[in-house]
């Protein structure tokens, strides 16, 4: 397993982390996927579950409810994609993204609990707060990307992988893909990195490779914490991906163990 690299963002070492070719990239093959699915299948998960780096790093999470801060990543990432496609400003990009969601809600296409449904329930001032939060998120991404010299593009979506026969899906957050000599995946988080940040990054590395049509591991998986001015990176080695898979399996076991008795019995 490779050591975690820690560098300050915005400086020369940050550019180096994204633009200097990592070691030759590896692949996950069908056998890896099969073994992985068998281990999850053995857990006998009673209810469908979704795991991500958060489940690896912070097992106990409160029930989800939309708020301006929780909406900012999804809207901010979509705004970055619009900005790259030619939107004149971050704010207009965010407003366009929100308008699309509102139109979908008005057309009856938004299910209860979705972001679009929640946005449609907000009064204008609260929607402005959402716009501000999303614009702040997107501006941080613009700031990060402006420091890059290598070609990059916004991630089209997070990486998703459903484990066959295990009622478990995995999600890896990703904001920016650097397409230099090898693919480097950048994901951005609020706050500052905790002790389990490396485990979360390795989990994201494994999920990203599982979601890739050819099982290709990213050359590097870089986590960025703009509020702390820090980036942490793991190399895209098979050992790191295996470690990520083990973290995910442990998180799934924990989730099964803490499931309500009625659910386990069901």
């Amino acid at each position: 397993m490779s050591a975690l690299t820690v560098v300050p963002i915005y400086g020369a070492s940050w550019r180096g982390l994204l633009e200097v070719a990592p070691p030759e990239s590896a692949h996950l093959d069908d056998q890896h996927r099969r073994q992985f699915a068998e281990r999850f299948g053995d857990l006998g998960t009673a209810l469908p579950q979704r795991l991500d780096a958060w489940s690896v790093e912070r097992p106990a999470t409160s029930p989800f409810a939309w708020s301006p801060r929780r909406a900012r990543r999804s809207l901010g990432n979509a705004a970055l994609r619009r900005l790259v496609a030619g939107s004149p400003s971050v704010r207009e990009a965010v407003e366009d993204v929100i308008t699309d969601r509102l139109l979908s809600a008005a057309a009856g296409l938004a299910r209860p609990g979705t972001l679009a449904h929640w946005l449609s329930s907000l009064a204008a001032p609260t929607r402005a707060i959402v716009i501000g939060e999303a614009a702040t998120w997107a501006t941080s991404l613009v700031e990060l990307s402006q420091a890059l010299e290598a070609p990059w593009h916004p991630a089209p979506a997070d990486a998703y992988y459903a484990i066959a026969g295990a009622r478990t899906s995995l999600r890896a957050a990703r904001e920016i893909i650097v397409t230099g000599p090898t693919r480097v995946v950048v994901r951005v988080r609020a706050g500052s990195p905790g002790r389990s940040a490396g485990a979360g990054l390795r989990a994201d590395l494994a999920i990203d490779a599982l979601a890739h049509p050819h099982g290709e591991l990213a050359g590097r998986l870089v986590g960025v914490w703009p509020e702390a001015g820090l980036a942490l990176a793991v190399e895209g080695t098979l050992e790191d991906a295996r470690a990520g898979a083990r973290h995910l399996l442990r998180a799934a076991r924990r989730a099964c163990a803490t499931a309500p008795l009625s659910v386990v019995a069901a």
Partner: peptide, 9 residues
Amino acid sequence: RLAAAGYDW
């Protein structure tokens, strides 16, 4: 926050 979002209150 509202001013930063361009909200015309």
